[in-house]
Amino acid sequence: MEQAMLLAKERQLVVPGEVLAKGFEWLPSAGCYRANNEIRAKQLGLVRIKERFIGVIPLAGVYVPRPGDGVIGVVNDIQPTFWIVDINSPYDSILQLGEAVGEYVDTTKTDISVYYDIGDVIYAKVMAVSRSKSVQLTMNDYRAKKLIGGRLMHITPSKVPRLIGREGSMIELIKNKTGCQIIVGQNGVVWLKGEKEALAAKAVLTIEAEAHTEGLTDRITKLLEEGV
């Protein structure tokens, strides 16, 4: 039997098919798969090693909902007892009346669009995802709310952690320098509101473009200070 061997380094850039480790001591997590005794990347991205688990953080790709994610969505249809919400994903999501409104609603008398109408922007939590990716949202979360006014932007969902930064450092930096309100959904949708929206938007796009590079915080600080 072949000896167990780790071939990839933390944060190494890998392409799909690249062998990251050999042997059964290592386990594949997201972005990887096992082929016999090898663990290989299945997406272009950066290697992440955590104990025995090897994963790849992809540099591109669409958003696939996971329970617990905070997402920003737009209401795109209303049914008698639920809303259909576009969450920037191949999968639409459903927000049931009971998960959205904390009071009794007589649906024979009330059109539920008084709560959320088509085009409304919401920050919601993913409550459940079925195996075939039917998605349920909930507003029963202290962060969940309707977002009024402001501007929506999109970034690659896998780059969300970079935009937020270590313990929220990057997003706090942008908030402080621009005075904007900013909410970042795990689905890569960003909501901005404030006087300096354009500058904040520029910073967000720069982070998106350079997410995989070193020294990003310094460059963003410079960009924001020059823009003031």
């Binding site: 669409v62 969505g73 737009v74 576009d86 920037n88 994903s89 191949p90 085009g119 402001g150 501007r151 929506l152 999109h154 949708v189 354009a198």
Partner: peptide, 24 residues
Amino acid sequence: MVTLKPSESYVRKLVEEKVRIDGR
């Protein structure tokens, strides 16, 4: 690719303030 529709009302509001979304 973006599946969410671009914010039409946002573009409109900016134009009223004589600003284009990309600053041109």
